[in-house]
Simulated assay, not measured.
Amino acid sequence: MKLRIATIDIGTNSTRLLIAEVENGFVKPLYKTGRVTRLGRGVKETGYLSQESIERTVAALKEFKKKIEEFQVEKVVAVTTEAARLAKNADEFLIKVKSLGIEVKILSDREEAELVYVANVSHFKPAVPAVTVDLGGGSTEIAYGKGEKLLYYESLKFGVVVLLERFIKNDPPSASELESLERFIEAELEKFKSRAGIERPFRVFGVGGTITSVVAMEEAMTVYDSEKVHGYVVTCQLIEKWFKKVSSVSVEERKRIVGLEEGRADVIVPGLAFFRVFCRVFGVKEITVSELGLLYGLALKEAKRCQKG
C-alpha cells in the first residue's frame, strides 16, 4: 500500500517537516524543510514554555500545514521531544497545535533514540557496530547497537540550547567559559562511555543541525544541499577547524559565514564543542553525517507498518 505522509519533529531548537511516500517498507522523500523556532528557550530555568516560543512554533506549523495540504498528504505524524517533556505548560502548547488540526505525541527518550538509530543502520548497513549521535537543542540521544538491534542508549539531558544558556554569557565566549563547557561535556561523555560498553571498531553517524552545518560551512553552501550533506564524512580535524573559527568571533560575525543558518549562529559554538570533545573521548577520527534524523525514522516506522498491511 502506497501512502503519502508528513512527519513533523517539534524540537527544543528547531521544528522540521518531511513529506514522503511510503510503500513496502521504503521511504521516498518528496519535500523537507525546517525552521529555528527555539520552543525550549529558557525551559530548564523556568519550567515553562514561553508564549513567544509557543507562538513562533505555531507560526512555523501553520506554514507546514499549507505544504501538507499542497502535497495532498494522507497521514500526519507529529512528535515533540525534550522541551515538552520538561515543560509544566506543555498541554497548553499541544492544545494550540491541535487547533491547527495536528495531533502531537510527546515522544519518550528511548523512542527518539531508537527511531534515529534504526533509520541509520537500515540505510547505511554498517559492517561493524554503530553509534548514532543526535545532538538536539534540549537533549542528546546516543545509541549503540549491532545491525538493527539497539544494545544501549542514553538521553543526555543537555543539547545546544541548554549548553548555550548554562555556559556562555560573553560574545565571543571567553576562554574560561569554553573550558567549563568542555569539562562538563567531557565528564558526561566519559560516564556514558563507561556504561555503554562499546566494542571497537564502530562507525559513528552524526545527526542534527550542528554536524550538518559543518558540511554546509566547509562547502560554502549558499543553498543547503541535503544530497551533498548526507553521507559526507566529517573528520575531527574539520570539526576542530570550524570550532576555532566560530568560537573566536561574535554572533554577528558568525551570521556572515556562508552555509551557517542565521538562527544557529549562537548555538554552533556549544554544538561544535560537543563534537570536538566526542572525538577526543571516543578516540574517533571521523563522523559520517546523516540526514536521517527523527523525521526519517518516523517515516520508516510508517513504511514498515504499511508493509505489514
Rank of each mutant, 00 (worst) to 15 (best):
residue 73 V to D: 01
residue 140 T to F: 04
residue 138 G to R: 09
residue 123 H to W: 08
residue 49 L to S: 06
residue 102 I to G: 12
residue 89 N to V: 04
residue 69 E to P: 07
residue 132 T to S: 03
residue 105 K to N: 13
residue 138 G to C: 05
residue 64 F to D: 06
residue 91 D to T: 08
residue 34 G to T: 00
residue 47 G to W: 08
residue 73 V to A: 02
residue 139 S to P: 13
residue 58 V to R: 13
residue 63 E to T: 10
residue 39 L to G: 05
residue 130 A to D: 08
residue 27 V to Q: 14
residue 136 G to N: 08
residue 28 K to F: 12
residue 23 E to S: 14
residue 30 L to K: 01
residue 145 G to T: 00
residue 128 V to Y: 11
residue 107 L to D: 12
residue 15 T to D: 12
residue 118 V to Y: 07
residue 126 P to E: 02
residue 38 R to L: 11
residue 140 T to D: 05
residue 116 V to Q: 15
residue 47 G to L: 09
residue 81 T to W: 04
residue 81 T to M: 05
residue 115 L to D: 15
residue 134 D to L: 08
residue 100 L to I: 12
residue 100 L to G: 13
residue 132 T to Q: 02
residue 133 V to H: 05
residue 33 T to A: 08
residue 89 N to L: 08
residue 83 A to R: 04
residue 25 G to T: 05
residue 149 K to L: 02
residue 114 E to P: 12
residue 139 S to M: 09
residue 65 K to C: 03
residue 129 P to G: 07
residue 41 R to D: 08
residue 151 L to V: 10
residue 109 D to A: 15
residue 42 G to F: 01
residue 136 G to K: 03
residue 83 A to T: 05
residue 151 L to R: 15
residue 107 L to T: 15
residue 92 E to H: 10
residue 148 E to D: 03
residue 121 V to P: 05
residue 30 L to G: 00
residue 83 A to M: 07
residue 113 A to R: 10
residue 40 G to I: 02
residue 18 L to A: 00
residue 89 N to D: 14
residue 41 R to M: 03
residue 53 S to D: 13
residue 124 F to R: 14
residue 148 E to K: 06
residue 23 E to G: 05
residue 77 V to R: 15
residue 129 P to N: 05
residue 117 Y to C: 09
residue 67 K to Q: 08
residue 90 A to M: 05
residue 92 E to L: 13
residue 113 A to K: 11
residue 123 H to L: 10
residue 120 N to A: 09
residue 149 K to E: 12
residue 71 F to Y: 15
residue 139 S to Y: 09
residue 120 N to W: 06
residue 25 G to R: 13
residue 28 K to Y: 12
residue 38 R to A: 02
residue 123 H to S: 13
residue 44 K to L: 05
residue 113 A to G: 12
residue 83 A to F: 08
residue 152 Y to C: 09
residue 131 V to S: 08
residue 144 Y to R: 01
residue 79 V to F: 12
residue 31 Y to H: 14
residue 152 Y to A: 07
residue 39 L to E: 07
residue 101 G to Q: 01
residue 80 T to V: 00
residue 88 K to N: 07
residue 57 T to I: 07
residue 50 S to Y: 09
residue 126 P to R: 01
residue 102 I to W: 12
residue 150 L to S: 13
residue 146 K to F: 14
residue 137 G to W: 07
residue 33 T to I: 03
residue 151 L to M: 15
residue 113 A to D: 10
residue 146 K to L: 14
residue 100 L to E: 14
residue 123 H to D: 11
residue 126 P to V: 03
residue 25 G to F: 06
residue 52 E to W: 00
residue 31 Y to V: 04
residue 47 G to E: 09
residue 109 D to R: 15
residue 30 L to Y: 00
residue 140 T to Y: 06
residue 97 V to F: 00
residue 42 G to W: 02
residue 135 L to C: 01
residue 79 V to T: 15
residue 72 Q to M: 00
residue 28 K to T: 15
residue 106 I to C: 03
residue 134 D to N: 09
residue 33 T to M: 04
residue 20 A to W: 04
residue 35 R to E: 13
residue 42 G to D: 13
residue 32 K to G: 12
residue 60 A to Y: 08
residue 53 S to T: 09
residue 86 L to K: 14
residue 88 K to Q: 10
residue 118 V to L: 11
residue 95 I to K: 09
residue 28 K to E: 14
residue 98 K to Q: 11
residue 146 K to Q: 14
residue 66 K to D: 13
